[in-house]
């Protein structure tokens, strides 16, 4: 059996690797939860790379329906074509377009299917996919064709915990929660991205970062990737370390919401 291992760009914790391998072994979807910016989406890329498989990403939006992932029947195009007497209008299959899930099923090779940010969709969305994810097949009514997975894809699902997911759906998943890195680990992560970062600058920036994260009413907590960007900005700007706490230079890199910036200003004054 193929085993997932850390890649050069992505350092996975033991537990995370175990979850991925258990999910593959049990043929169940892997549900990854965690704050934004903890590398949930990157995980799927790392898994695909580590196993040498193709990655298919299905980005979920608030308007995404389960059906979108299966197939689309472009009736309007067919209507237009009918009006102008195009060739092949009677061939419905021409107007059936497979969605991301359908694409993953239809692939000859085993693929990694990432269903990204599933909690963005309607509450019913995960339930609508239960059968398809269980049985790895669906039926196209218009052409009376059953699309069945040639090779069962490895399904990775991410969620930001914006909405609760239905029980029936959760029961079928393997669950892993990516903890927010503590300061020691964070230092390590920052150093892999900026190996030559100055000691004092890093310390001051991290202090501010964790202080902002600890504010109770912050609307969007700054994430790992934002800290890395911020340190990058501080380095390029040549900001002396002792000014970081007092002036919060480039703070817009880690605090993105107007309301949060206002709150921060109020606290400073």
């Amino acid at each position: 059996m193929q085993q997932f291992e850390s890649t050069q760009e992505y350092v996975a914790s033991e537990q995370l690797m175990a979850s991925v391998n258990v999910a593959i072994a049990l043929k169940k979807p892997l549900l990854i939860k965690g704050e934004p910016g903890t590398g949930k989406t990157m995980l799927a890329q790392a898994v695909a790379k580590s196993l040498g498989k193709k990655l298919i990403i299905w980005n979920i939006k608030s308007t995404t329906k389960a059906q979108d992932g299966l197939y689309m029947y472009d009736t309007i195009q067919r209507l237009y074509d009918g009006q102008f007497g195009e060739e092949g209008v009677d061939d419905i299959a021409r107007y059936i377009k497979l969605g991301k899930l359908g694409e993953a099923f239809d692939s000859d090779e085993q693929v990694i299917l990432l269903i990204d940010e599933i909690d963005k969709a309607d509450l019913e969305f995960p339930n609508d996919l239960l059968w398809e994810l269980d049985q790895m097949e669906f039926y196209i009514h218009e052409t009376k064709r059953t699309v069945k997975a040639k090779q069962r894809p490895i399904v990775i699902i991410t969620s930001n915990a914006e909405k609760e997911l239905p029980d029936a759906f959760l029961r079928r998943c393997i669950f892993h929660y990516i903890d927010f890195p503590d300061e020691a680990l964070m230092e390590e992560i920052v150093r892999t991205h900026h190996p030559d970062v100055e000691e004092n600058l890093l310390k001051n920036a991290m202090d501010v970062f964790y202080r902002i994260r600890s504010l109770k009413d912050i609307r969007k907590k700054p994430s790992t990737s934002e800290l890395i960007d911020w340190i990058n900005a501080l380095q390029i700007g040549g900001i002396p370390a002792n000014k970081i706490k007092a002036e919060l230079p480039f703070v817009g890199v880690i605090v993105k919401k107007d309301e949060d910036l206002e709150g921060l200003q109020q606290r400073l004054n």
């Binding site: 537990q15 175990a18 979850s19 391998n21 258990v22 072994a25 049990l26 549900l31 939860k33 997911l165 959760l170 029961r171 998943c173 393997i174 669950f175 892993h176």
Partner: peptide
């Protein structure tokens, strides 16, 4: 999962294995 030997032989691994399968939040 246990049948497939995914817990290895350590309690810690069993702990994480049981948690990832049984607990969903």
């Amino acid at each position: 999962a246990l049948e497939k030997g995914l817990a290895g032989s350590s309690l810690t691994e069993f702990y994480y294995l049981a948690r990832m399968i049984l607990v969903k939040s």
